[in-house]
Design a protein around this nucleic acid. Structure first.
Lengths: 207, 207
DNA sequence: TCTGAAATCTAATTAGTGTTAGAAAAAATG
DNA sequence: CATTTTTTCTAACACTAATTAGATTTCAGA
């Protein structure tokens, strides 16, 4: 279905794109089907030929968003050489996450900004996919720790949530013409692994 | 005015509290004045005796939220001894930010979750306060770097946004009965300053 | 207790929403 | 071309929201 190229499939995709864009900008409740229909160049009622409700539409946008990041990060891991360092693997995952969030954009960032303010049914349906994506990160971090690349006393659950927060928040401040996504990813990882303290002579060893 | 204790002022405060709570949970657009009125134990129309519109109500909630964190973090800095380390100062600021976000709660976290999906007028009005709060953090970080406690090549703007993201995102996952806010703050700062890599300098920070 | 102001309630207005049913048009099929 | 199917449009429906005006109640002070 997803890959087919019939006229119907193309219109469907156009509507989904319009919905993702509008939901991201205005949020779920503030977005009207009229907004989406306009962005997709059709009449409001016509949407119902392709989607059964506003909630279902959001559901598909959210699902596609998570699936996209999930697939992107997974791909980034599979493309790495087998002998690459844990730090490299994490850098690669961070980079992929940011790319999907900031560049491939609307679906994934609709996800970030609107999860939490969406009807309960949609929320419930979506939770499984979220959990699966979280599991991927759990796995990446756990492996790094087992290899000894992460200090043994790091709380992985906390680390993961802080890292996701730092990355996801970028949808609020990222400007394409300032720092490149790659540079951001590199700096995130450098700070993360080596800390921000001046690593040479620590003069604050005690006052 | 804010401190006065007339009946009118008390009802106003009650409405604001109800609004902050509801906005936080459901978002701006999905929150109805009826919801707020119910939470404040009165009829919908009565709200208009105290607030001229839904937008103005949100405006006050957002403003109060930022003012609260701003004041909290500022206070945390002023209460520190003059000779305390930069790391201590930042830990203190992080802790204060988290407390306001997770404990004193509704106003500040309404802010986090709803900025971005609020009418333009409200958005515009609110920007100045946001900038003032950001400036406070800029100052804290800049001073730390000038003292040499932060490596000279750290991009402070990036660091600040990543840190805010990591902290703010906690409204999405924090559970009061798991880890204490203080413990979270400490771990954040430890990871931040010394990194998560296993090669990080083992330093005994006495708390 | 009486009175005028403050505070709240009630009920209506207006506007906009998601959704649906059926007509119309476009595309596909023979 | 004729006919059937797919897709889109139009116009309505049922509902809910923010807001307002006027009636009603509460309440402080004389």
């Amino acid at each position: 279905m997803t890959g087919s190229n019939t006229k119907s499939a193309r219109t469907r995709a156009k509507i989904l794109d319009a919905a993702a864009l509008t939901f991201r900008l205005r949020g779920y409740a503030a977005t009207t089907l009229k907004d989406i229909a306009e962005a997709a160049d059709m009449q409001t009622g016509s949407l119902y030929y392709h989607f059964e409700s506003k909630a279902k539409l959001m559901e598909e946008v959210l699902d596609k968003g998570i699936r996209e990041v999930h697939a992107g990060v997974l791909k980034s891991q599979k493309e790495l050489a087998a002998d690459v360092s844990a730090e490299q693997r994490i850098l690669s995952a961070v980079h992929a996450h940011l790319i999907l969030l900031l560049k491939n954009g609307d679906y994934t960032s609709t996800n970030i900004r609107n999860f939490g303010q969406v009807p309960d049914e949609v929320h419930q349906h979506h939770i499984k996919l979220r959990k699966a994506y979280a599991d991927l990160w759990r796995k990446i971090l756990r492996q790094a720790q087992q290899e000894g690349a992460l200090a043994a006393d790091i709380d992985l659950a906390l680390l993961r949530m802080l890292l996701m927060g730092a990355l996801n928040w970028s949808v609020e401040w990222y400007q394409p013409d300032k720092t490149s996504i790659e540079a951001i990813a590199q700096q995130v990882c450098r700070m993360l692994f080596h800390g921000i303290g001046s690593s040479r002579p620590l003069k604050n060893a005690s006052a």
